[in-house]
Design a protein around this nucleic acid. Structure first.
Lengths: 106, 106
DNA sequence: TCTACTATTTGTTGTTTGGCGAAATAAGCA
DNA sequence: TGCTTATTTCGCCAAACAACAAATAGTAGA
């Protein structure tokens, strides 16, 4: 692996890593349907609000989402909508895993 | 988030997490061009061979790659080729990050 | 069989992440 | 201004991860 590549792969890994957490992934998928405020996430996720805020900041740092403060509330939305496109493929991997798993039992 | 969903998102996150490491991501991209044996990775990556083997096993466990032992060597290949499709989008995120970064300096 | 080679597994260590609760910050309202 | 609500930041601890080195296992050939 070339040195120049190394930085590129680190950058790519950082983006993926930000999505590689169940809560953050769920958040990102919700946002693919439209913006949401922090308070809505707090209502729907069973975790401390400080934890939720932290997850959102990880997504923001990675460039997945952007925030917008309006009054007392902060709204988040996807910054690069294509982000959720590849979920289809992630699901394909899981489906294949399940299939192979099932085959083992036969 | 519904309880049933929780498991699904954990499974998806596991797949993403397996790719969310610079070395593993690079490996997966190499494999998108065709199978490779462990020894080839060892030649090309500056890390202990045990580390490399471990990374491959993480990818295998996630269902990203499958292995095939032939003689003394073990060959790995992508199990679900679409896996690399979404890299395009990851790159789009990085490009956008760079753009915004540049805008700050203006 | 004994040896050399390839790869995986295990043990150890240091680093990073994830989560909570408390404190700090920001905005709107009485 | 002082109070309340919404969110972020900080400090702390436990769990997960990454890397190396040493030990182990499988295969091919002498």
């Amino acid at each position: 692996m070339k040195k120049k590549d190394k930085n590129l792969y680190e950058a790519k890994a950082k983006v993926l890593k930000s999505l590689a957490h169940p809560t953050r992934l769920w958040m990102a998928e919700q946002l693919s349907a439209g913006e949401m405020c922090v308070c809505e996430f707090v209502e729907q996720i069973d975790a401390d609000f400080s934890t939720i805020s932290k997850h959102l900041s990880v997504l923001k740092q990675a460039g997945i989402v952007e925030d917008d403060k309006r009054g007392k509330q902060v709204y988040y939305k996807l910054r690069v909508p294509c982000v959720m496109n590849f979920m289809e493929c992630v699901e394909a991997v899981i489906a294949q895993n399940a299939k192979d798993q099932a085959a083992l039992l036969r």
